[in-house]
Amino acid sequence: MRTRTVLAAPLALLVILAAGACSDTPTQDEIASDCVTALDERTKGDTSKPSACEGLTEENWLSVRAAHALKDVNSDLGLIDENLDEMRDGLDELREGN
């Protein structure tokens, strides 16, 4: 009787862990990736939250939205790419003490 109890407890734990590992719930990273795709595909000027973004926490939604907005500004104006080399050069000069 005692042997069956000792063997049953670890077996039950393995079953519980296996059930949790097989969960179909997407991670925040997976949802964010789908969200970015949905944001890229939506019509310009559309400010509604795509359904693909619904599972994100509020903090992650704001982060994805802010990053996407910066990407939009960069693609429209080219500001980040044009100034990136200048910023790197300035940082290099600061590090070198010039």
Rank of each mutant, 00 (worst) to 15 (best):
M1C: 14
M1G: 14
R2A: 07
T3S: 11
T3Y: 15
V6P: 01
V6H: 02
L7T: 12
A9W: 10
A9G: 11
L11K: 02
L11Q: 02
L11S: 12
A12T: 04
A12V: 01
L13E: 12
L13Y: 03
L13S: 09
L14I: 08
L14K: 02
L14P: 01
V15K: 00
I16S: 01
L17N: 04
A19S: 01
S23D: 04
T25V: 11
T25I: 01
P26M: 01
T27L: 00
Q28A: 07
D29Q: 06
D29V: 09
D29N: 08
E30Q: 09
I31H: 00
I31E: 00
A32C: 02
S33L: 04
D34W: 00
D34A: 06
D34H: 04
C35N: 07
V36W: 06
V36A: 12
T37M: 03
A38G: 09
A38E: 05
L39T: 01
L39F: 10
D40N: 13
D40C: 08
E41G: 13
R42G: 07
K44T: 08
K44G: 14
D46Y: 05
T47L: 13
T47W: 01
T47Y: 07
T47R: 13
S48Q: 15
K49I: 15
K49D: 07
K49M: 10
P50T: 12
S51F: 05
S51Y: 06
S51Q: 02
C53I: 00
G55H: 01
G55D: 01
G55L: 00
G55E: 01
G55C: 01
T57M: 05
E58S: 11
E58Y: 06
E59R: 08
E59F: 02
N60C: 08
N60G: 05
N60V: 12
W61S: 03
W61M: 03
W61R: 09
L62Y: 13
L62S: 14
S63W: 04
V64T: 10
V64E: 07
R65Y: 13
R65W: 15
A67T: 09
A67F: 14
H68F: 13
A69P: 05
L70E: 12
L70P: 07
L70G: 15
K71V: 05
D72M: 14
D72Y: 09
V73D: 05
N74C: 05
N74R: 04
N74W: 00
S75K: 12
D76A: 13
D76Q: 12
L79Y: 11
L79V: 15
I80S: 15
I80L: 13
I80W: 08
D81G: 11
D85R: 08
E86L: 09
M87F: 08
M87P: 00
M87C: 11
R88M: 09
R88I: 15
D89Q: 14
D89F: 14
D89C: 00
G90H: 03
L91K: 05
D92N: 15
E93K: 13
E93V: 09
L94K: 14
R95G: 07
R95N: 06
E96T: 06
G97P: 05
N98E: 12
N98Q: 15
N98S: 12
